[in-house]
Nucleic acid binder design. Sequence first.
RNA 1: GCCCACGUAGCUCAGGGGUAGAGCGCCUUCUUGGUAAGAAGGAGGUCAUGGGUUCAAAUCCCAUCGUGGGCUCCA
Length: 606
Amino acid sequence: MERYEDSQLYKIRHSMAHILAQAMLERFPGARIAIGPPIEDGFYYDFELPRAVHEADLKWVTERMKEIIKGDYPFIRRVVSPEEARELFKDQPYKLELIEGLVSGGVDENGNPLPTNEDVVLTTYRQDTFEDLCRGPHVERTGELNPEAFSITFKEPAGAYWRGDEKNQMLTRIYGTAWRTPEELEEYLHLLEEAKQRDHRRLGTELELFTFSPMVGKGLPLWKPRGAILRDILQRFLQDEQLARGYLPVVTPHIGKLDLYITSGHYPYYAESQFDPIDVEGEQYLLKPMNCPHHIQIYKDQPRSHRDLPLRLMEFGTVYRYEQSGELNGLTRVRGFTVDDAHIFVTPEQLLDEFIAVVELIQFVFNSLGLHDFRARVGVRDPESDKYIGDDEMWEKAASAIIEACEHMGLQYHVAKGEAAFYGPKLDFIFRDVLKREWQLGTVQVDYSLPERFQMEYIGSDNKPHRPVMIHRAPFGSLERFIGILIEHYNGAFPLWLSPTQIAILPVSNKVQTEAEALEARLKAEGFRVEMFNKGQLGRKIRDARALKIPYLAIIGPKDVENGTVSIRLRDDTELEPMPVEDFIKMAKYVAQNRLGDLVPDMSNV
RNA sequence: GCCCACGUAGCUCAGGGGUAGAGCGCCUUCUUGGUAAGAAGGAGGUCAUGGGUUCAAAUCCCAUCGUGGGCUCCA
């Protein structure tokens, strides 16, 4: 497959960025330009502007861009010497900084090191009156671009730090999307609109799953009954699975003494992600940012033998982390969340097998939930940073254990620097959602550091004390984020086993109210989550039940009562032939127990 | 936290320097209806909060809080 960087679309978007810059400079004389690369689906350009950008500016710039395109100017490339470049961009400090980076700093426009064995050649591209430092490539002429196949008003202007560093100047970023044809643009905008419809925040309100209250605090979700039921189903699903795999439940409190976190290293290594300590009678307590220190105390409560290992302690543990207010986002980024946590204490010999077992569990969980578009990332530490505990040898050992396990399982993975936890490297499962955003869900971490810091021990077969290794792992990551993603993944139409309400009972009239209530009781006795709809006429009941995306609408009227049937309608509008109540129960049970997505499976062989 | 935008009824939104609007939802009554809104009445808002400008502010200005799009940071 063709690389994006080599594609025509890439050239189109790159060229669009230059045209945007030209138009912006005409609108904002004296503006300073930074960088303007193509990105997925479009491009952007960063500017330092004398004032805020308004909608009218964007309209003007859009029209001007169309004129430039229609002007059919050639993109003219030329090689310039460093001196020429400095002269050319003498009023553009960001460009000068880029030039110095290229010429003497050995870094490219993103601040990444250049390949050392390459001579730096500075090039510029010019269209019409605008010349930009750029290595290309571009289309030949502006006339190749379609003036009706781009938009810079589809997204608000945004702030962005120069070189992505929050210590730097905040620039104004104008985003654009550009395509080959107006039809492609239309399709893309339509996709965005659809994605908006399935935003978990919107669906969370419509389906009555969760809410937020400014009085409780931002980033602190409140789970309403339907959402709490969904949460509970997921927890029970995972808990049952883990119990079957030898995990043991524990429960620990939401705060702990500061000393605990000083020993663990959370304080100070993780301090910037924590709420400030709470003073209680002169003692300092911390809202727990992680569950591991508490679980370690349970391990240490009694002497452990190698015969006790692996010891797998699990807890749906709620943790609190300080997130900057601008980072909060619905359920996917909150300040208090529940980790489907477990800490597994193993002997070094057991590590590989146990690690593999954990990855298998995570894969089982993802599969059961219909999540298939994910990748595995091995996060190792950033050698430049000092926010890690433990010595090099431990990090080396832990990272190679993870990679060995991946190789052993034939798991596709890639290594990412700076993505480790502060106490050890990790294997993350990153899910790609319908909006093409990526979310870190499941995670497994190998940790030699905390056992050391807490002086943990077990007695080996040699009757001598040994240090265990710890695996931290969470298949969902956090219930909050996971559910947020599930909501969008299913567009709120959960498979039967996850649906907060599974069956809506819709009596045709109150003449069959008694029979409808009997059906409700019957279905509840069979273990289904059932809700009676009594408002208005049948049409209204259908409408209300469908708004909640309830999988089965069980309609019962005089004819059904007479025949001992129920008329099933699905949330997608499918109407089934009236069927005996027993048949419906059998089918629904089959669908729920097998966690099927299909609500009407072939029952002929069941 | 930073840049920008937004905040009007439970929800979705219109309006806009001179006594607050719609649809849905909610309540009451009537209706007992076979596959996406039965009918009629009614309640409900200090227009996020606090200041300022003005004869007069929901409307203009400032601050705060909250939300959204980005940046940075993360499960």
